[in-house]
Simulated scan of single mutants.
Amino acid sequence: MKRLSAFNKVVFVLNAIAALLLLAACAVPYISNEKFSFLSFLSLTVPLLVGMNFFSLLFWMLKRRRQLWLSLFVLVFGYFTLGTFLKFNFWGEDLQEEDLSIMSYNVRGFNRYNQLDNPNVFEDVKSLIDKEQPDIICFQEAGYTRKKEFLDDYPYQYLDYIYMDGKVLLGIFSKYPIVNRDFVCFPDSPNNAAYADILYKKDTIRVYNVHLQSLGITPGKGIIQNKPKDKLFKMLNENFKIQQQQAKMLEADMKTVNYKQILCGDFNNTQFSNAYKIIKGDKVDTFIEEGSGYGRTLNFHGIPVRIDFILADPEFEVKSHKNYDEEYSDHFPIMASFKLK
């Protein structure tokens, strides 16, 4: 430090802060939100912290300074602890007719409240589905009144109205018979999960459709700018705790059956969160397996984030994963295909 110029000292201090925050973020998936929920904020900033450390590493490399070891260490440690958020897949497989394909999409009520200047959102979504022809669709924030309009291609459905004020509707549409279905009802929350047991190739698989607690900072509503910072922090803190509780409820429910399982949904948090780690367990993330690029499923105040996931038991071989760019909601659809091993 003594041999550094004043400018380089400032850079190193900022570098050290970014390195310490990234190290702290590495602990977030492994600690309880009940006691350390304030650290959960870091799970939302991992790509930013990685970028800051990467450019710090380049800076010190160009300067040929030993300070480069700090960022190099935390980047390597972070990679082995958290995994990657960028995928380079130049040999991705195309969807095969014999594969099982599943699409997950938070459709935001098919633009029921006109958040988008597009009166034909439902028709556009249906056209996308007609083109891609997924075998199973999991909608979050689905519109109950649209249920009958999918009957032609998806004769097996689970989209029941929930007689609880404000509950988010989840829809599961299948080309294969549904033999059992139910909710995993999250208490004291508008969010919930649903599942359907589906007959597929003489086997029964369980498909979960999940919508975890929203953090309450939806883009476009001015919450971050207008809400007092102490109240905003308290609200986020509480919602992180609720997400963990909901994740544990799902984890417990998944242990009640021996069916092979696929889980889709909007987690309202990233892959670096405690909730994601609990739900994922030993499942595989289809984007990590066969995705490409950044995997964005939502633009959060202009920042691309991946908060929608498709997870599957190891008995499924992930054949493909696709992210879409169609803007029919605040979220973007994702689809994956599988082959039973």
Rank of each mutant, 00 (worst) to 15 (best):
Q271H: 11
V257M: 09
G293Q: 02
V257Y: 13
R296L: 09
F287Q: 11
F287P: 09
I262N: 02
F300G: 04
T256N: 05
M254P: 00
I278P: 11
I262L: 02
D285R: 02
E251W: 09
A275N: 04
D308N: 11
I303Q: 00
I307L: 08
Y276K: 09
Y259W: 03
I279K: 00
T286N: 12
I303H: 00
N258H: 12
M254I: 03
N268E: 10
G291H: 02
I279L: 11
I303V: 13
I303E: 01
A252C: 02
L263E: 06
I278M: 12
D308G: 05
K260D: 15
F287R: 12
P304A: 01
L298C: 07
S273D: 07
N258E: 14
S292L: 00
G291L: 08
G281W: 06
G295P: 01
K260E: 11
K255T: 07
N274L: 09
I279C: 06
G293R: 01
G295S: 08
R306W: 03
M249P: 01
N268A: 11
K280H: 03
I307P: 06
R296W: 08
D308M: 02
N258Y: 11
G302P: 04
R306N: 08
I278G: 14
D266C: 04
F300L: 14
I278F: 08
E251C: 10
N299T: 09
E251N: 14
D282G: 14
S273T: 06
I262V: 10
F287V: 12
T256Q: 14
S292M: 06
F272E: 10
G265V: 10
T270A: 14
K248A: 13
D282Y: 05
G293C: 01
K280S: 15
T270E: 10
C264E: 02
K255G: 03
D266Y: 04
S292Q: 08
Y276S: 07
F267N: 06
V284I: 13
N258L: 08
I303A: 12
A252M: 05
K260N: 11
Y294S: 12
I262C: 00
Y276W: 00
Y294R: 14
K283G: 13
Y276T: 03
N299L: 12
V257N: 14
T286C: 15
F287K: 12
I262E: 06
M249K: 08
R306P: 04
I279M: 04
F272H: 13
P304H: 00
S292I: 03
D282H: 14
Y259P: 01
K248M: 14
N269V: 02
S273Q: 05
K277G: 10
M254W: 03
C264W: 04
F287L: 13
M249A: 07
T297L: 07
E290A: 15
E290N: 12
N269W: 01
D253F: 08
C264G: 07
D266N: 02
I303F: 10
D282E: 14
M254C: 03
K277P: 05
F300D: 07
A252Y: 01
T256C: 03
Q271V: 11
E289W: 03
Y294E: 12
S292E: 09
K280Y: 01
D282C: 08
K260C: 06
D285Q: 04
Y259K: 05
A275Y: 10
D282S: 15
E289Y: 12
S292V: 03
A275L: 11
N269I: 06
